[in-house]
Structures are given as structure tokens and as C-alpha cells.
Amino acid sequence: MYKIVKKRRLNDAVTLMEVQAPHIAKKAQAGQFIIFRVDEHGERVPLTIADYDREKGTVTIIFQIVGASTKLLNQLEEGDDILDFVGPLGTPTHFGEVKKVCVIGGGVGCAIAYPQAKALHNMGVEVDLIAGFRSKDIVILEEEMKAVSKHLYITTDDGSYGEKGFVTDKLKSLIEAGAGYDLVIAIGPVVMMKFVSKTTEPYGIKTLVSLNPIMVDGTGMCGGCRVKVGGETKFACVDGPDFDGHKVDFDELMQRNTIYKQREQHDSEHVCRLTGGKRHG
């Protein structure tokens, strides 16, 4: 059992939780993830580690409430326990020798882009952050992101906050203006990561993406999370989740992520309608 020591609502659909898990906190590195199982009937769901505190022994996760499992997780409060919490899984991000990096977060992906930016910032690297949101009311972590970047550019699709437009528009204009990035890191919806990779490709700027395929065990024993990278099949849970964005088959990943769509929708509605969210003992 893993105790929730802090819970904070970042916006209507995004929640932050700090979870007591000393053995994970001790080893976690940027780019790694955990798998949680909310209760005995729960499924195993991966979430990227958003932050950790080695001294307090806590791991922070930030999740968007999108389906049954995240709804159930969101119903837990400070002091409650999550049944299973395993990690740190995956290969830590390998930043390489870099001087100036652009980190791009899309929506709740900012929760994961933020720790990457923080890790780079702490390494003494110059970081620009582009954070893209649909509209003003879902902007998250603005202060935190500002603290770890030289420039923070916020974009909204509808122009209700920051600059109007997509993150790719902003990225392109910065590159064109001679920003001189030697690495771009993109984290967010698959389609956003795909278009960021397409934007940087003609300029030959190395681009890392953090993939989010369906997972079961998260330790390399099932291959449910397989993705095609440079024509080769890779298991995102052990070989990734970070990959070279110029080599990933994004279309296949988007398609594979839809396999249980109907069932997910059914479960999600079921959690709301029948149980009011709480599961019967």
C-alpha cells in the first residue's frame, strides 16, 4: 500500500498526487515512469514520474482524468492508499552533451515536460519551454515552468491566453529566428509529438519524444507496448519511453492506442453512472 501524502487539483481535469514510495524516490530519474493499480479490481496503468523527493521518500504523479482508472484514482484523497505502485520503470532520458534545449509540452504533457526542463536546468543547460494548451482555463504549472526556463512561451489554440496557435508554429518561428537549439524534447498527445518531429526534421535538430502506448506489466514481458522505431520493433517500457522522434512510426502508435476504445468508454461511463465513482467492496 502506498499512501497519498498530497493531492492538488491543477485544473478541472488534471490532478497532482505526491505518493509515499521511498524505494522509488531513491532511484527515480527524469524520463522514467511508474505503474499503479488502484484496487483489487483495477488495471495496471502507467504514469510518468513528474517529480520525486529523495529525502521525503515521495514520488509525484500528475494525471489527466480520462477514463475509469484515472477517475477512480482521482477519488482517493490525502491519507488514502493506492494498492500497487511500481517503479521506477523505463530507461532514464539520455540528454547527451547539450547547451541549448527547447522543451515542448502539450496539455497535460507539460506535467512531464516540466521535470525534463528542470533536470536540464539543474545541469546548467539553457532551456526554452513552449507549453501548448487548448484554452486559458486548462493552463497548468505556469509558475513551476517559468522557474526552470530562460523563456516560457505559452500558446493556446483559441488565443485566450499567451500566443494564439500551436506549439509547432512557435517552435518554427524560434528556429527561424536563430534560436540555435541542439535538442528538442516533445511530450504530449501523439499527434503533437508527430508534428513537432516533422517541424524539426528539415533543420536536422535532434528530437526526443516520450511515447505513451498501452502497457500491461511495464517490465518487458508482454510486448503490448511495442512501437516501430526506425523500422524496428521496440518495447516502449524497457527500450523507452523516450525515442528519436524522427524515427518513430506515429501513425501506427495512434492506431494501436485505439484498440480498447469502446470498452474504455463503457467502463468510464459505468464508473460515473452506476457507482458514482466509488467501487463496491
Partner: peptide
């Protein structure tokens, strides 16, 4: 076609 939806490893 091994990465199509509906292809599982026996382990999964």
C-alpha cells in the same frame, strides 16, 4: 503485420 491491433504475444 505483427504490430496490427489484435496481435498479442501469448504472455500478454
Amino acid at each position: 503485420g505483427e504490430d496490427l491491433m489484435g496481435v498479442y504475444s501469448a504472455n500478454e
